[in-house]
């Protein structure tokens, strides 16, 4: 199987401080890949490198390649708009816009040129259904998204991402602000979405990584220590540091 994302010798510096060191990693399509590791080890940094959200931070520079579908996204001619449409992102804090539920989902498609109401209606309904949110909000589409619960907001954000038709969805600790029931629903959703999308998820919760992911990547101090099938990594870790981390000895 060809890789969806292939990262080769990727370094990232925040000014003088090197946050990622010679990262090599291949991410397989239609799988969920989990990033785990102690706080500050570079999980979010690598995730945000995959849709170049780090570009906005002053002083960041990189070397190496991150290729998506074979094209290096750090090439000079990369179209950031196209890249970010293709690689969606869900953040730690649910971040709906303070506008209606409908307008949140329609925001991306509208900006990217879809104008007819019929088409937008169709996109909103389809993506909200995909995000398992439709039944809860179909009668209040035109009310503010700020009135939704945290878990609903996070699913709305996912629908908003789906509406611009990405291939890859990056999630940075998407459940860390949610209660257990919302978390469970989110996890179900992640598993369900992987048949159509390639998903990378950062999590601090090892049970969550074990439940939702196919592959797990363990980070330490800006380096990848171990990559393996999730079951393998959690039951028979190869590296001693991985074992220490998953058995809760640090982090």
């Amino acid at each position: 199987m060809t890789d969806k994302i292939s990262i080769e010798d990727f370094d990232l510096y925040y000014g003088e401080n090197q946050a990622l060191k010679k990262i090599r990693l291949n991410i397989i399509p239609n799988q969920v890949t989990a990033f785990i590791g102690p706080s500050g080890c570079g999980k979010s940094t690598l995730l945000r490198s995959m849709n170049r959200m780090n570009d906005m931070i002053p002083g960041v520079h990189t070397s190496g390649r991150i290729a998506i579908d074979g094209k290096n996204i750090y090439d000079r001619e990369t179209d950031l708009v196209q890249l970010r449409k293709n690689v969606g992102m869900v953040f730690q804090q649910p971040n709906p816009f303070p506008i209606s539920i409908y307008d949140n989902v329609a925001y991306g498609p509208r900006i990217h040129g879809i104008k007819t109401k019929k088409k937008l209606d169709e996109i909103v309904e389809r993506t909200l259904k995909q995000a398992n949110l439709w039944d809860e909000v179909k009668d209040r589409l035109h009310l503010s998204a700020m009135g939704l619960s945290g878990g609903q907001q996070q699913r709305l954000v996912i629908a908003r991402v789906l509406a611009v038709e990405p291939d890859v969805i990056l999630m940075d600790e998407p459940a860390s602000a949610l209660d257990p029931i919302s978390t469970e629903r989110l996890e179900e959703l992640v598993i369900q979405l992987k048949k159509d999308y390639t998903i990378v998820i950062v999590t601090h919760n090892m049970q969550q990584a074990a439940r939702v992911s196919d592959k797990t990547v363990f980070f330490l101090n800006g380096e990848i220590i171990e990559v393996n099938d999730t079951e393998q990594l959690f039951t028979h870790p190869e590296d001693q540091r991985t074992e220490q981390y998953i058995s809760g000895q640090f982090g």
Binding site: K85, F91, Y107, I111, V157, V164
Partner: peptide, 25 residues
């Protein structure tokens, strides 16, 4: 910052983000 990032992450340009998200907010 989250709203700004959300908009950028949807492939929306800086100017469109200013117009559609930042100024209304």
């Amino acid at each position: 910052r989250e709203q700004r990032e959300a908009s950028f992450a949807l492939g929306v340009t800086h100017w469109q983000t200013i117009l559609k998200i930042l100024i209304p907010a």
